[in-house]
Simulated scan of single mutants.
Amino acid sequence: MHLRLPALYLALCFLLAPASQAQDMSEKVLGERIYVPAYSRIFSYPQRSDLLAATLAVHNVDPDTTITLTRVDYHGEDGQVLRSLLESPLELAPFQSKTVLIPINDTSGGVGANFIVEWTSGSPALSPIAEAIMTSGSGGPGPSFTTRGRVIERRHAD
């Protein structure tokens, strides 16, 4: 018996494939800007889509250094800032995390939404893990997956 994999499964495998460029996880820096893909809906057929909730999670993985989140913005698929999600700078102690939810009924971001996370530190620190967790939240089986952020700007210690 020949089974065909659903298009959604193949798309998710592609999205979750390891990045081709490895990042030096031991490098300590003074701050970064991180791009995190997010999705408020995904298409399974040309005229059918599933709504998704997106949770941004930022984890300070440095065991010794506090970092400060200075900016967390949610952008729509057109690249425009939809809203700032951080009212004021927020310190994250070692191993502390911060999460922000875009609810399932908020489709303003579209298929190609994203978060921009900016952080800084007074002394060199390890890059935090920034990822988005998307889920259908319907109570039944539905799509759930994560995306990992990509550093797009880095401040090195002089």
Results as ranks from 00 to 15, higher is better:
Pro94Asn: 11
Pro128Cys: 12
Asp106Ser: 03
Glu91Trp: 01
Ile133Pro: 02
Val100Glu: 15
Glu87Asn: 14
Ser138Asp: 13
Val151Ser: 06
Ile102Glu: 00
Gly140Tyr: 11
Leu69Tyr: 02
Thr65Pro: 07
Ser97Asp: 13
Phe115Cys: 01
Thr147Tyr: 01
Arg154Ala: 03
Gly139Gln: 12
Leu69Thr: 07
Ile116Gln: 00
Thr120Met: 09
Ser123Phe: 04
Trp119Ile: 00
Glu153Gly: 14
Thr107Leu: 09
Val61Thr: 07
Phe95Ala: 02
Ser84Ala: 05
Gly137Gln: 13
Ser88Gln: 14
Glu118Lys: 09
Leu85His: 04
Ile67Ser: 07
Ser121Glu: 00
Met134Leu: 13
Asp158His: 14
Thr147Asn: 14
Gly79Glu: 06
Thr68Pro: 03
Thr135Gly: 13
Arg154Ile: 12
Phe115Leu: 11
Ser144Asn: 10
Met134Gly: 03
Leu101Ser: 14
Pro63Met: 08
Ala157Gly: 14
Asp62Thr: 00
Phe95Asp: 07
Val151Cys: 04
His156Pro: 02
His156Met: 09
Asp73Leu: 12
Asp158Pro: 15
Ala93Met: 06
Asp106Trp: 00
Val117Glu: 06
His59Ala: 09
Val58Thr: 08
Thr65Cys: 05
Gly140Asn: 12
Ala93Arg: 13
Arg83Gly: 03
Ile67Val: 11
Arg154Val: 14
Ser127Trp: 00
Asp158Tyr: 01
Asp73Arg: 08
Ala93Glu: 13
Val117Met: 02
Gly142Phe: 14
Arg83Cys: 09
Asp158Val: 03
Phe115Pro: 06
Ala130Leu: 07
Thr146Ile: 09
Ser84Ile: 08
Arg154Gly: 03
Thr65Arg: 15
Ile116Glu: 07
Glu118Pro: 04
Leu101Ala: 10
Glu131Ile: 13
Asp73Thr: 15
Asp62Asn: 07
Pro143Asn: 02
Ser97Lys: 11
Asp106Phe: 00
Ser88Asn: 10
Ala113Ile: 01
Leu92Gly: 05
Thr68Lys: 10
Ser88Lys: 15
Met134Val: 12
Gln80Asp: 08
Thr146Asn: 15
Trp119Asn: 01
Asn114Val: 01
Ile152Met: 12
Leu69Ile: 00
Thr70Asp: 03
Leu92Ile: 02
Gly110Glu: 08
Leu86Asn: 07
Ile67His: 05
Thr66Phe: 01
Asp78Ser: 09
Pro94Lys: 07
Gly79Trp: 15
Phe145Arg: 05
Ser97Phe: 03
Asp158Trp: 04
Ala157Gln: 12
Thr146Tyr: 06
Ile67Tyr: 10
Arg155Leu: 09
Ala125Phe: 03
Pro141Lys: 13
Ser123Leu: 04
Val100Gly: 08
Pro124Asp: 04
Gly122Val: 07
Leu82Phe: 08
Thr65Ile: 15
Thr65Lys: 06
Gln96Lys: 13
Ile133Phe: 12
Ile104Phe: 13
Pro89Gln: 11
Ser108Glu: 09
Asp158Phe: 05
Thr99His: 09
Leu90Phe: 12
Ala93Asp: 06
Pro141Arg: 10
Thr107Cys: 08
Glu77Tyr: 11
Arg155Pro: 00
Gly142Leu: 04
Leu82His: 01
Leu82Tyr: 02
Phe95Pro: 05
Glu153Ile: 01
Arg83Asp: 06
His75Val: 01
Glu118Gly: 03
Ala130Lys: 04
His75Ser: 07
